[in-house]
């Protein structure tokens, strides 16, 4: 099954930077009501505006291999980058996941995220892969609000 690439299984078994940490400026809790999967995700920013650095993404994820791997990939790709980079990565991930398989994903932009390209062919699973990303954008919004 091309959906379960080695990279996804690796991320789901050993999620990168798993666990909730302090400090953080924004936190979001998201639930997938069809299966009860949950993720809590925190964002710690240093600096302000698009060039602020995503110093830490910490999270607690309970769910299927796709949702856990997606959170892990998120943490790996976004931690240490700028907010602008995080937004670009999110947009590219979302475009790939909602493309119904048309958009294979650009490894230069989303890194290990390309391993999730197979999910796009299964509409029922797209929500699993987007859950942590929805939590990230919400937590980022709150973190930026807290800085005002």
């Amino acid at each position: 099954m091309d959906l379960y690439q080695e990279l996804i299984l690796d991320h789901s078994k050993k999620p990168v930077n798993h666990g909730l940490r302090e400090p953080f400026e924004g936190e979001s809790h998201q639930v997938n009501p069809t299966c009860g999967d949950e993720v809590t995700l925190r964002v710690h920013l240093v600096g302000e505006g698009p060039e602020a650095v995503v110093e830490d993404v910490s999270y607690d994820s309970m769910g299927c291999s796709i949702s856990v791997a997606s959170a892990s990939i998120l943490a790996e790709e976004l931690t240490g980058g700028t907010v602008a980079h995080a937004r670009d990565t999110y947009e590219a991930m979302r475009a790939m996941l909602t493309s119904k398989g048309e958009d294979p994903g650009d490894e230069d932009v989303i890194g290990d995220g390309v391993a999730l390209s197979g999910v796009a062919k299964y509409p029922a699973r797209v929500k699993c892969a987007l859950l942590s990303w929805a939590a990230f954008t919400d937590a980022l919004y709150k973190a930026e609000g807290a800085q005002q």
């Binding site: 379960y4 769910g63 299927c64 796709i66």
Partner: peptide
Amino acid sequence: VHPHDVGQV
């Protein structure tokens, strides 16, 4: 193994 993954297989 999460049920979503079982169902997918």
